[in-house]
Computed example of a mutant assay.
Amino acid sequence: MTTQKAGSVVFENIRKNYGAVTVIPDLSFTIEPGTLVTLLGPSGCGKTTTLRMLAGLEHPSAGRVFIGGKDVTMLPANERDVSMVFQSYALFPHMNSLDNVAYGLEASGLSRKEAREKAEDGLSLVGLAGMGHRLPAELSGGQQQRVAVARALVLEPQVLLLDEPLSNLDARLRRKVRTDIRELQQRLGFTAVYVTHDQDEALAVSDRIIVMKEGRIAQAGAPRELYEMPASSFIADFMGEANVIACEVIDVAGGEARVRIGKLEQRVPARNARPGAASLAVRPGSITVAEGQGTGLAGRVLHSAYLGGHVEYEMETEVGTLFIVDHAVDRTLPAGADATLGFKTRGIALIEH
């Protein structure tokens, strides 16, 4: 399989209406060749509609779609150089794995011999060499998903589309298969557009993440950027749990803002902050816990739970109730205990107020 066909994707001022209802008001983004970009968001945010417009299964009401520099806005699905991996796998139950992978190749005009040779290569590519004789019912869920990926990859599309590809797998298998997909994408260098509502999945596989809300882009960027520097309380909460805390920006200098949280002062990246009222997004693992009263933010334990690798706390403070994940598992503070809280330098960010 070659990698030279990896294509770019451009959405240019796309709008999508269903009758009088507008589900995508105005959407523009670019996906560079050879990258894996995830469309992430809650149900109803427009991510699946966006993927279907890219696949040619839906057409936009306005705007243009480009794949590899070619305007494909009104082209049907079979005339676009894309392949799709569906949530349901969509394997033919009466065909063995080899025939399932070869089906699209034969339909595109290859001889049965050539198609089966390519299909065998495709199965090897996804770690299923020697299993071409098995029917889908004789494969595990993860193996069926790999067959679906192989079937899409052997067509050597410019863009591979993955629609909630792991949602039918259990948690442990989901981690394994998402690692397989990411390793394949990096090794072969194809362009992939991945749709999911699972934040951990998006963080694990993506070069970039586009978080959508109500048909618009709420924030786009690298996984670390979105997690550590959320632009809004919606992003902070959606990309993993976060405590949103009211604070005051005292001053800004050298790219840093000095903020006051209760009686505690902290320096954080400025992010165009100005002095005055603001909000901080603080990850649960970015709060330090010390037993007793000391210099810092005073807290009182409302609830604690030992979970093996960490302790979870709910603590009452002067800036509200905070959820904390503490990896110091040698002790667990009981309900009612006093504690002193501090903040680490990572996982704390100013967000729009």
Score class of each variant (00 low, 15 high):
Val268Cys: 02
Glu201Leu: 08
Arg178Thr: 06
Asp99Ile: 02
Leu203Tyr: 09
Pro269Lys: 12
Asp170Ile: 05
Thr49Gln: 04
Gly7Ser: 12
Ile67Asn: 12
Gly34Val: 04
Lys176Ala: 12
Gln4Glu: 12
Glu248Tyr: 03
Arg331Gln: 06
Arg224Thr: 08
Ser97Cys: 10
Gly132Trp: 00
Asp330Phe: 15
Arg216His: 09
Thr38Leu: 00
Glu79Val: 02
Lys70His: 13
Arg15Val: 07
Val154Cys: 00
Asp121Met: 15
Glu291Pro: 14
Glu291Ile: 06
Gly189Ala: 09
Arg15Trp: 00
Ser304Asn: 05
Gly309Phe: 03
Leu297Asp: 04
Leu297Tyr: 10
Val268Tyr: 15
Glu265Leu: 06
Pro60Gln: 14
Gly336Met: 07
Asp338Gly: 01
Pro334Ala: 15
Ala335Thr: 13
Val37Met: 07
Val319Trp: 00
Gly68Glu: 09
Ser140Asp: 03
Gln144Val: 06
Ile14Asp: 07
Tyr194Trp: 03
Ile209Trp: 13
Lys263His: 14
Phe343Lys: 03
Gly296Tyr: 00
Gly142Tyr: 03
Val23Asp: 05
Thr295Phe: 11
Asp163Gln: 08
Gln4Leu: 10
Ser286Met: 05
Val259Asn: 09
Gln143Ala: 04
Phe234Thr: 02
Leu341Ser: 05
Lys344Ser: 08
Val10Ile: 09
Ala231Ser: 12
Phe343Leu: 03
Glu314Pro: 03
Gly292Gln: 07
Val301His: 05
Gly56Ala: 10
Glu79Ala: 13
Glu106Ile: 01
Cys45Tyr: 05
Gly109Ile: 08
Gly44Pro: 02
His353Phe: 07
Asp163Lys: 13
Gly127Ser: 02
Gln87Asp: 14
Val319Pro: 10
Thr332Met: 15
Thr49Asp: 09
Ile181Asn: 09
Gly68Trp: 03
Gly309Asn: 04
Val301Asn: 05
Val82Glu: 02
Ile250Tyr: 11
Ala202Pro: 11
Pro223Asn: 09
Cys45Gly: 06
Gly56Phe: 15
Ala349Arg: 11
Arg112Ser: 01
Asp338Leu: 03
Pro25Glu: 01
Arg216Trp: 01
Tyr89Arg: 00
Val82Thr: 15
Arg15Asn: 12
Gln266Ile: 10
Pro223Ala: 10
Glu58Ala: 07
Thr295Asn: 14
Pro157Val: 02
Ile14Glu: 00
Val101Lys: 13
Pro230Cys: 04
Leu75Gly: 08
Arg174Glu: 06
Ile209Ser: 10
Ile217Leu: 08
Leu203Pro: 13
Gly142Ile: 02
Glu106Ser: 00
Arg216Cys: 08
Ala337Asp: 11
Leu98Glu: 08
Pro76Leu: 13
Glu225Gln: 06
Glu214Gly: 01
Arg112Lys: 06
Leu105Ile: 09
Asp237Phe: 08
